[in-house]
Design a protein around this nucleic acid. Sequence first.
RNA 1: GACCCCUUCGUCUAGUGGCCUAGGACUCCAGGUUUUCAUCCUGGCAACACGGGUUCGAGUCCCGUAGGGGUCGCCA
Length: 435
Amino acid sequence: MKVRTRFAPSPTGKVHIGNIRVAIYNWLFARHHGGEFVLRVEDTDIERSTPEAIQAMLDAMDWLGFDIDGEHLYQTSRQQAHLEAAELLLEKGMAYKEDKGGTGQGECVIFKMPGTDVTFVDGIKGTMTKKAENMQDFVIVRSNGTPVFHLANVLDDIEQGITNVIRGDDHVENTFRHIALYEALGADVPNFAHLPMIVNRQGKPYSKRDGDAFVGDFREKGFTPDALFNYLALLGWSPGDDREVMTREEMIEAFTLERCQSSPAQFDMKKLTWMNGEYLQQLPAEEFEALALAELEKAGVQADAAYIRSVLSLIRDRVKNVTEIVPMTGYFFTDDYAYDEKGIRKKLQKDGVAETLAEIKAVFQSLDVFDEASTDKALHDYVETSGLGFGAVMPPVRLSVSGMQSGPDLFPLLAVLGRDEVLKRIDRTVEKFLK
RNA sequence: GACCCCUUCGUCUAGUGGCCUAGGACUCCAGGUUUUCAUCCUGGCAACACGGGUUCGAGUCCCGUAGGGGUCGCCA
């Protein structure tokens, strides 16, 4: 039988990384077995399932590059079928009506547990058993006539032909009930696998106040979808060898439920950041440029295309996140750059620095050509003849022309800025801090 | 409280009875790349929750203990 998995989010807000990881594992599993991956929108909570929430969920899936098979199934469209099934269970005596708790709200439909132990083999956790006396009958249709999650979920999985249900740990207890429902309905019971959850830095489940665990937040923070996908796939699963940065094809090839962890995993922003850098480095030059250009444009940077390209080549291999590009390159595009105050105090406002800068200025003015090689040689010669150390020469120059203590290699940096700009900036810095 | 489940470096993990003086990655630290550095290279710190068994031999199997998590809705 062809494997078919599904992602069944209830679009009641933003898409959480825990949910998206469940989607990733379902997708990986389906593709590994050459099967299908479908989507079901569990939109029965009319209040919270707004068109905007549904769209946000779809956008997140799209951004991460999920390819979804077939039409999406909207659970609300299935209400009639759900109620008919409940009716059938009632007729067969497998469910009964009751004014539960005597609330006076009317009668609801309650599914009768079969009174036998339920056992299933979880793809991740192994054999799971629940004794009959530890399970209770449960509501499948509310007294207001609407179907409850358990009924709808099972019926829709049957409808969509789901062979493998891979979902969060929090559904383990439901699974015993769901299996009873499948059997009462005369349907094949799918294979189940329950993933442990992702926890926050404190080792606790993410709560609303952790705030930064939504897919959209990572997008805004400049992470690439491939890096996030790869990182999340590795949070609770590993290919069994030392590979970490993997293509989707490699992940599909290596993915099995047996290799999934059965204990919770802690989300680590530092490792995600590292991985994002790896992906950025791997990007073809044109793609990196396109991303960088978009960032610069957002920041309102206007400059010659060739100049921008040479600036980008300076920082290319040290960018770990596209959002770093603007702060890293700001001083290339404006004279009005900020100075690192600590650097000014430590490296610039010292005896002799004004004289050193004046002498370097003269050296630069005397050069026939002003490029990486000539400035390199000139400053090395200067260090030699002046008897000063590199540490007394390079940092003041860097601070003068960029305002920063760190950045790209100094000589190519000077070459890109150009002689006029460099001299102007040295003057300005001396004027500002050394007078 | 009841019922289920989990437990290897700070974190993500490898490990399916001898190949484990426990491997890799992130982080951190120290050196290096004769200036800087967020890149790169080299090196280092750091773990089998605890206690009993079984076995010639246990991170790996069994039993307890402790700690953690999930679920106990006419939510999903």
